[in-house]
Amino acid sequence: MSKKLTYQIVVLFLLAILLSILINNLSINLSRSGLQLSFSWLLRPASFALAENPLPYSPSDTYAWALFMGWLNSLKVILSSLILATFIGVFIGIVRTVGNSVLGFLAAIYITLIRQTPLLLQLMFWYFVAFLGLKDSIFMPIKGMISISNKGIEFLGLSLSSEFSALLFGLSVFTGAYIAEVVRGGILSVSRGQWEAFRSLGFSEINGLFKIIIPQALPAIIPGLTSQYLNLAKNSTLAIAVGYSDIYAINDTVINQTGRTIESFIILLSSFFLLNLLISNLMEVINKITLNSKKI
């Protein structure tokens, strides 16, 4: 068994002990004041509607199912933002490092602008200005292929709500700026000699970048990328600001209806713990693969 895994298990074990002590404490306190820690309400009908649900859902379904829809909605926006942010970040990071001076300057402005303003404000911008500000079907370059309007994005039969789209763009553009800096740092960590070597062998800049520089930059990029992905997952809870039904927003509704604040927060925390564990372990696997494919 790897040292890392042992370490993870020990930490998880300690956390479980700590948590059970806390919960025990809590339930003693709760029962003293006549309340009981209970999860049985999860099986009662939620009786609220959801704006979007990846699986069939109606108000007569249980709270548990409603929360699961929220978790899936979170997962959906996190994964798609993660992919889009990576593309933006890699592109901007490269342009910033090796692009001509005009492109490099524009990339630098984008990074500064995004990093100097609060994410909440940016999400509001994407929702209220960029999407809701649009008229009906204002942008239809190829009829039936893609349309962007105040109802969201329609793309080849795939329809994305304006809430989802605003969140997707907001999170991706925001995280992309940070990923760009991670990518830039990784590229700069590769010695000048490697650039000179591929140039003198007649490689084009772009070919050399992808064949020689990026593979060597990956070990420096992946840890930074992981922490940006984790930040993205956490930042996705700002979905509530644009009215997207993510796990946090649905939890909020559930608390309002049931008054089960403590239980709901336990559910919320474990959902995110699970999600982030998923992301960091996935990145760990990717890291292993890239490290194994190169012997430095």
Binding site: G193, Q194, A197, Q216, K295
Partner: peptide
């Protein structure tokens, strides 16, 4: 050919 060889380590 360079002083520091500059082979591709990966």
């Amino acid at each position: 050919v360079f002083q520091q060889f500059n082979l591709f380590p990966h």
